[in-house]
Design a protein around this nucleic acid. Sequence first.
DNA 1: ATGCAGATAATCT
DNA 2: GATTATCTGCATG
Length: 265
Amino acid sequence: MGSGDLSSAALPRGFFDRPSHEVAPELLGRVLVHGPVAVRLTEVEAYGGPGEDPAAHTYRGKTPRNAVMFGPPGHLYVYFTYGMHFCANLVCLPEGFGSAVLLRGGEVVAGLDEARARRTSTGTGRASTGSTSLGSTSTGSPSTGNGPAASGRAIPDRDLARGPARLAVALGLLREHNGLDAIAGASFAADRRLTGVPHGAAAMLEGLPAEAESIRSGPRTGISTAKDTPWRFWIDGDPTVSPYRAHVPRRRNSAATSVGGASRS
DNA sequence: ATGCAGATAATCT
DNA sequence: GATTATCTGCATG
């Protein structure tokens, strides 16, 4: 562990024992390892505690889902949303305080093939939208030969972990990893670099922190409240940062409206 | 390049 | 029963 280009030192637990909006910008450029895959973080969002942040899962107190956020810092909070996606956070502040940093985007720096396979296969993240049965018969694929044609088009490397749900898929983080300690696993990586982290363990490495000049901040993505709190942080110009999207209220299914008759156009 | 609609289930009121 | 810290495919310019 002496002189490596890639810094493999582990972040100490105390790094996360601070308010999430202080931790978030300092996470940029750092590396999260889970099994064979490692991601260099380029975009994150901070979420505060009960009563102080209407957009946070902990705003209304502790529940079975967000219990991990009230636990000790440095652990992963993984939650399921939109019926099909997982998102990963890193818990901040000591036990009893519920806050975390959502990991929104990053660059895959190790385990590229594994990450691509996870994004391509229909495991949890990607759902092939039907149309599989028909079509393939006859004529076959035009540009065949030896390309990766089988599953349609290839995913660009920059998109492997761009977006919170994509990042979780690339790292192989699922419901069962909720509560996983990202500090304990770091001892493996400190000795063996990116390849030494056992499958099922996680490691948060120092990496090469982003320079302060390249860090930008702005409102968080996809939330309906606290739109003016600039707790989204990203590395300016990095291609793996997801595009900002304002919250768009989903139009309810007209069939569910029931009585009342007030039909809004 | 940008925009919309659909999918799908846990969580909370 | 409504909402959600989202992604993808297909549509248009």
